[in-house]
Computed example of a mutant assay.
Amino acid sequence: MITVEVREQSQVAEARRRALSLAENVGFGEQRCGRLAIVVTEAATNILRHGGGGEILLSADMEPEGGRVDVIALDKGPGMANVQESMRDGVSTAEGPGTGLGAIRRQSDHCDVYSRPGQGTAIVCGVAASARPPGGPGPLRIAGVCLPRAGETLGGDGWAVRKAGNGTVVLLCDGLGHGVGANTATVAAKAGFQAMGEAAPGEVIADLHERLRRTRGAAVAVVRVDPLDRRMTVAGVGNISGLVRGGASQMRTLSQNGVVGHNAVRIKELEYAWEGPLLAVFHSDGLSAKWDLEMYQGLATRQPMMIAAVLYRDFKRERDDNLVVVMKTEDP
């Protein structure tokens, strides 16, 4: 994932250029490149015109259906009281024809907008062979925002996902420090994680502890989610935070002190059970712990990428790498 700051008109063109470069990497043809160019141009222009500046996040992936480029547009402007009304062509709160949001929706294969008065606007959209949003489909949907700190191209935060029987296992990693050294530790952790097969979360961290001895080390959490059993197993060392919410219950996950690769103690696994649909948020210390979903009316019902994007926008620490991952299940 990459970010493009949008504070002046020239950065609209930069966002478009970066998006089209990603599109070429995943095999987009001329028609889909044209649609993507419209989406990014309109999203970045809206950030300038209505939001007073913000940023565009871009990511690309190859899937069985074909390539996809996802676009997230974030601003902290005045927001919108009625998103559906603002989607209609000709409706504008600033100088302009009022066709931007409508064009984004028409040219995207998926599009979601979250905006509240006084809380800015977030748009999650994209052009892809599949119309599904990032993080789905399936009984468990997972999506995340992961970016290096401003001014760096390599970050120490990272995450990975793999299937394990009827469950899904997720790795979250924060390499110590920043830049190349932190990134080396996280790359090693991700490679080790993918090689661990059916190992339990505690066993994965114990293995990574050996693999990371020649690196700076990292804070690591391994999360196994079994949606059918409504059970989550978590092992964590270092400053990876988590919140598990299901039905009327809400629990903060616990991590042990230490650094994987250097001074991790005996690894403990903790189990968390939930009722009803699951919503879980995990993040590195690049995100302030002061966030609260209750601040955002209706946000908890949105797709995982939208939740992750809004939390990143409002609670990221500018001088740190940033990682926030959101997991959700559908209503039973």
Rank of each mutant, 00 (worst) to 15 (best):
L20P: 11
H110T: 05
C111T: 00
G155N: 09
A37Q: 12
A19C: 09
D70W: 00
D112F: 06
T121F: 00
A122L: 07
P117F: 06
L22I: 06
R116Y: 03
L22S: 07
G54D: 02
V91C: 03
A94D: 09
G90S: 10
S115H: 09
P134R: 01
T45Q: 13
G66W: 10
L58Q: 10
A73G: 14
G155P: 07
L140P: 02
T93N: 10
P117N: 07
G135S: 01
G138M: 12
V40C: 12
F28V: 06
G79Q: 05
A37R: 13
G52L: 13
G155K: 08
E63A: 10
G158N: 11
G156P: 08
V26A: 06
G79T: 04
A19W: 04
G27A: 06
P148S: 05
S130H: 03
A73R: 11
G27E: 10
G66S: 12
P97E: 13
S130G: 05
C125V: 01
M62V: 15
E24K: 14
D75V: 10
V91I: 15
P97G: 02
R49V: 10
G53M: 11
T41E: 15
S59I: 01
R49S: 14
A60H: 05
G138A: 14
E55N: 11
T153I: 10
V145R: 06
V40L: 13
E63H: 13
A128G: 15
G118S: 08
G158R: 12
V91E: 07
V83A: 08
G67F: 12
D89E: 15
G51T: 12
Y114T: 04
P137D: 13
S115W: 09
A81I: 03
S59R: 15
M87K: 06
R149C: 14
P133T: 01
G51N: 13
P78V: 12
G77H: 02
G120N: 02
A129I: 02
P78Q: 10
I38D: 13
P78S: 11
G66I: 10
V113D: 01
R141E: 15
R18Q: 15
G96V: 07
M62H: 09
I104Y: 05
A23M: 06
T41L: 06
M87D: 00
R18D: 07
V69A: 07
E42P: 01
S86G: 01
A44H: 06
I123N: 02
G27T: 06
G138L: 12
L74F: 09
L140G: 03
A81P: 08
